[in-house]
């Protein structure tokens, strides 16, 4: 009787695991099935590098969106990484334990705030500032970069803090014993030791920035054109899907799935790098 139930549970768990995997596979295969044929028929070059996106005329080139995503994400990293790293180093090395008990949950709360809230603040506070001081429409690469940079701060902060905290104290003591100042210890011993975790955190933040949709739609203006400066309006890959999905049919819909495929590939590559960064850290 008991042996029977054990086997039953084994089978049940196996079915659960297989169906979970099937579900995950389903998404990837579905997106690929809907999007890949379109890419091959249009030609990878034409699809990726043509600047004309005119669904009504049957022209589908996502180059402006690729450039848009690239600039906005790059800008977000320029804003988010230095702030996140400096914050993480200071918080984990200099802040006493009792204060950590307040700061850590606050960071987690900020990581949980819906991205649309960040987007709204971008529209209400940031865009007018940019319009007044730098000209242009305000809703721009700069606005998107700053808002995304702030949005990924909690991610970078919390992962970097964890990995800096994980550096054994004996490393620090060793450096102090050799006469290093606290700052020398930090930048010569602690940061290199925590590097793989920090890199993983940055890559995860990068992934979040590329994948963000609604907040970006709110602040970048969404014009399909190659930007001339940081204060021009752009459209990102994600925004492109979200803005046109509601009414797209036929070729147009396939083109959106193809955009999804491009996003998917970018994320997979990033994940691969994140995973190998973590693995390197473990090996060391």
């Amino acid at each position: 009787m008991k042996v029977l139930t054990e086997k039953g549970i084994y089978r049940l768990l196996m079915i659960i695991a297989l169906s979970a995997i099937a579900m995950l596979l389903l998404i990837v295969l579905f997106i690929l099935k809907e999007g890949l044929p379109f890419i091959f028929i249009t030609g990878i070059r034409d699809f990726l590098l043509s600047s004309e996106w005119k669904p009504a005329a049957g022209k589908f080139g996502i180059f402006p969106m690729l450039v848009g995503s690239l600039w906005v994400t790059l800008g977000a990293m320029i804003v988010g990484v230095p702030l996140g790293l400096a914050g993480a180093v200071f918080i984990s090395e200099f802040i006493p334990r009792w204060a950590m008990k307040i700061i850590k949950p606050t960071i987690e709360l900020l990581a949980g705030i819906p991205s649309v809230v960040y987007g709204f603040i971008g529209v209400m506070v940031l865009a007018p500032l940019i319009r007044d001081y730098f000209g242009g429409p305000g809703l721009s690469i700069a606005a998107g970069a700053i808002i995304l940079g702030i949005m990924i701060l909690p991610t970078i902060l919390s992962i970097s803090i964890d990995s800096i905290k994980a550096v054994p104290n004996s490393y620090r003591e060793g450096a102090f014993a050799l006469g290093a100042t606290h700052w020398q210890t930090i930048h010569m011993v602690v940061i290199p030791a925590a590097r793989s975790g920090i890199v993983a955190g940055i890559i995860l933040g990068l992934g979040r920035a590329i994948g963000e949709t609604m907040a970006v739609i709110m602040v970048v203006g969404n014009a399909v054109k190659l930007p001339g400066s940081a204060f021009d309006s752009v459209r990102t890959l994600t925004a492109n899907i979200a803005l046109e999905m509601g009414y797209a049919t036929g070729k147009h819909r396939e083109a959106l799935f193809a955009t999804g495929v491009v996003l998917l590939v970018i994320i997979m590559v990033l994940n691969y790098f994140a995973a190998s960064a973590i693995k390197r850290g473990v090996k060391k």
């Binding site: 995997i21 995950l24 596979l25 998404i27 990837v28 579905f30 997106i31 995860l204 992934g207 590329i210 994948g211 963000e212 949709t213 994600t238 899907i241 979200a242 999905m245 959106l256 799935f257 999804g260 996003l263 998917l264 994320i267 997979m268 990033l270 994940n271 994140a274 995973a275």
Partner: peptide
Amino acid sequence: FGADCLAGIPSIIFGLF
């Protein structure tokens, strides 16, 4: 690896799907 990749996939892709 599959679960890791899917954890990082933009939510808009899930919306599309």
